[in-house]
Simulated scan of single mutants.
Amino acid sequence: MNSIIEEDIESLIADFPDWEKFRNKTVLVSGASGFLPAYIVETLSYLNIKNVGLNVKIIALVRNGEKALARFSHLRQYKFLSIIEHDVCDVFETEQNIDFIIHAASQASPKYFNTDPVGTLNANVLGTINLVKLAYNKNVESFLFFSSSEVYGEVLENQIPIEEHTFGYLDPTQVRSCYAESKRMGENICISWFHQYGVKAKIVRPFHTYGPGMSLEDGRVFADFVGNVVNGRNIILKSDGSARRAFCYLKDATKAFLLVLLHGENGQAYNVGNPHEEYSIRELANLMVNIKPELGIKTEVTLDKDNMQVYAKSTVSRSAPNISKMKKLGWSPGISAAEGFRRTVLSFLD
């Protein structure tokens, strides 16, 4: 395991009191090789390895088996992890008992919103229907749906930090809305199945989350910036850099996800983000170039019109969460953007 990831997971395990709730349980994770859910797989796996008696079984549903085998190559020797190549848009059946389902399969990169909008929305709608039915059939203890802060749309400045009941403008006739609208529908699927059939569904809405293991080809600006620093290239701004975002380190976010899975209220949504680490894109670029000042990296501004035809630019100028609901579950983020992005860069150089 990457040394930075191992340090993060050791710290997370030491800081999380409820691992006993996973003893002898089976956890199904969809999209398991993706950036956010992979850290959950890593954490539960590490827990098994360090605490042999815990006996957590992990079913990792992935669309690309080869990618997953590479991502979890260091875990292939262990029988507690089952990697199954399966598209969640198709019905999944198993005779195994399942205690927890984490549905995180989704095309979250903006580069897909223009090029594959149908594929983007299918996992959030059809995939959610298939897995919530499975949750009902297996009578799971908890079902966790990974939504997104994109569901809020364009809210007013005086509504930021955004509370879970606040929603703004979102145009369903714009192709970029394929992601946000289908996440909204995914949430309502969860709520409807909880209301009508009692499925113990909870929802997390991650804001901008970064950390070790994220794809540097993701298409999101902070991933591009990390890739530039790792490769010793100047940081290229493809806008005026005025848009503001709140950035949350993956270790902090992972703890929040697990808290909601175990202790979140059924039928409720929870913001997961770090409102204390809000930066404009230009400010983030300046922070990134200072991570390794010895490289002499600079910030450049290039408005690339050809790129913008592929990349579906967000119309949201500022996004930051209100995390009062998560604080009631005992969570607050603790890692600054300066430290978190430093650790992220180091993880790619390890």
Rank of each mutant, 00 (worst) to 15 (best):
I189W: 06
I235M: 10
M308S: 15
A223L: 04
V27G: 05
I191Q: 11
F146G: 07
L81A: 03
Q159W: 00
D306P: 13
N137I: 07
N322T: 13
A105Q: 01
S45D: 08
S109H: 12
A320D: 08
E187I: 09
A285P: 15
K57H: 06
G241Q: 04
T302I: 15
R245S: 05
I4V: 15
P17V: 09
L262S: 06
V140W: 01
P293M: 05
N290M: 05
L346P: 01
P110S: 00
A32D: 04
G34C: 05
T128S: 04
S182K: 01
E154Q: 13
I49L: 09
E85Q: 14
G31K: 07
K21M: 01
V29W: 05
P37E: 01
K292E: 13
A337G: 12
L295R: 11
A201Y: 06
Y210V: 11
P110R: 07
K313N: 12
K183Q: 03
K202W: 07
V41D: 03
T173A: 07
H74P: 07
E7G: 11
I160W: 02
L61N: 00
H208M: 13
F22C: 08
F225C: 08
K328N: 13
G340Y: 07
V52L: 14
I83S: 02
F194E: 12
N322S: 14
L126P: 00
R205V: 01
I335Y: 01
H195L: 14
W331N: 12
G340Q: 10
A104S: 12
H195F: 09
I162V: 15
E283R: 12
V91M: 07
T43E: 02
E150D: 10
I102A: 01
P17D: 14
I83M: 06
A38D: 10
L54G: 06
L295S: 06
Y197T: 02
V301G: 02
G168I: 07
L75Y: 08
K133F: 04
S82T: 15
V62Q: 03
N234V: 10
N307P: 05
R76E: 03
A312E: 00
E95Q: 14
N322C: 15
A312L: 08
A108N: 13
K202R: 15
G213K: 12
E7Q: 15
K50E: 00
